[in-house]
Design a protein around this nucleic acid. Structure first.
Lengths: 230, 230
DNA sequence: TTACGATCTCTTGCATGCCAGAGCCGTAGC
DNA sequence: GCTACGGCTCTGGCATGCAAGAGATCGTAA
């Protein structure tokens, strides 16, 4: 599954290729639909096709590329349906994370979340959307980590990679008033977590995800449906 | 992701190996901890190491095997912690599936679920635990499919494969009275789905999963903690 | 001008060979 | 008897070469 961090010592070639390519895809450095030739990548990285091939195969299972046998490997173009599904999963998993975190009580992640919100308030106050986007990312990341369920975390990361989320956050934050609302919603969630009210924390977190999705899709150009909407 | 079914025409060698090995692992035909040598498997299937290697790599991302570089590939031994996490995810995803299904209204899967419960009642009545175990599996499968969210379904399948669930179901059903309770809980869930009460369907489904987990762990021998509990 | 077809090129799938790291086992020294 | 060391064997990591399928392209014929 998506291991965004960790493991620097046993840097096998394919692990390097995986991280590199994953970074390019989720950052948008390579456009969806782009052909990723094994040979071209191998030459670019100065390695043989084998590790590249294995890296692409893993990225396929992560849903980031699509390997069409004997044709080519392409950066996945998410269909509208898939995006909807991904947001459903985001809502689901983050909601669950909020619940689990609330059940755990005061753990280090909660302190970090409080610090995050303090800085978020400042960023919103001075309308620093760039910085606030980072803080939003950190907030959600901390929440999921705080749930202390590695499976949940791994699957969450995989799904968010498919959304290429970092690119999208800015879109939603550019809507007037959205940063302020977002920040307030974060506060409500954390309050409920501190109150150890798992049920409510989950519910409010879900609402927050739905709101952010709405804000995002409203500011997004229409995306052509990919071929794979069944 | 785990594609349990589909895709017979483009049967590449590695796809064959993946399905075969996955089947062996989740059915318990190979013990957890077993060494899976690339060379041995290649000879067994009469192919070269390459497709075997790629198959094992995919099974690793599915969490079914663990590749220790330069050492060997082993069937994953889930730690107690991982099992707990997997059940948390099961509760989460099946609960969400129940909610989503309830929102969809009367779809074909609902009819199939009703048929499933009719047969389940009979199986329980005549104490046919073998058959009832199958029906339980179908029930949960239908529920998740009925949620009509491919991402949810794919991740659910992956997680359940890690649990090697089919092997476990019988354990819980051997507890006196458990089949009857289980069947009744299924009925309650479906009733709420039919009433389109998503909130309650999710809540009851979660309770059901927790109950089945309890029944299962109670009848299970203590498993030694794997090394990989971080 | 258009439609069809052969060919040609690019793609991945698979086989094979070599290499380095890890672990094991036997042996030698204490 | 115990410990430490050295080689041996097994493991996967990687490089490379060939084959087959898919798609584009260009020429030819209607």
């Amino acid at each position: 599954m998506a291991r965004g961090t960790r493991e620097s010592p046993p840097t096998s070639i394919q692990a390097t290729v995986i991280e590199e390519m994953r970074g390019r895809i989720i950052s948008g450095a390579v456009e969806p639909g782009t052909l990723l030739s094994e040979l071209a990548l191998a030459e670019e990285y100065g390695v043989s096709r084998t590790p590249v091939r294995e890296a692409l195969k893993q990225l396929q299972t992560e849903g980031l590329v699509e390997i069409r046998p004997r044709v080519g490997t392409f950066v996945t173009i998410p269909s509208r349906r898939e995006i909807t599904e991904l947001f459903e999963m985001k809502e689901l998993l983050e909601g669950a994370a909020a619940r689990l975190l609330a059940q755990r009580g005061r753990v280090p992640e909660v302190d970090l979340l409080e610090a995050n919100l303090r800085e978020s308030d400042e960023a919103v106050a001075r309308d620093d959307r760039e910085r606030y986007a980072e803080l939003v990312h950190d907030f959600h990341d901390l929440l999921v980590r705080g749930a202390d369920n590695h499976k949940l975390e791994a699957h969450y990361r995989t799904l968010m990679n498919q959304l290429a989320y970092p690119r999208l956050v800015m879109t939603s934050l550019n809507r007037p008033g959205r940063p302020f609302e977002s920040d307030r919603e974060h506060h409500r969630v954390l309050e409920l977590v501190l109150a150890k009210d798992g049920d409510s924390a989950e519910r409010v977190m879900r609402e927050h995800v739905r709101e952010s999705r709405r804000a995002l899709l409203a500011g997004l150009p229409v995306i052509g449906d990919g071929p794979g909407s069944r």
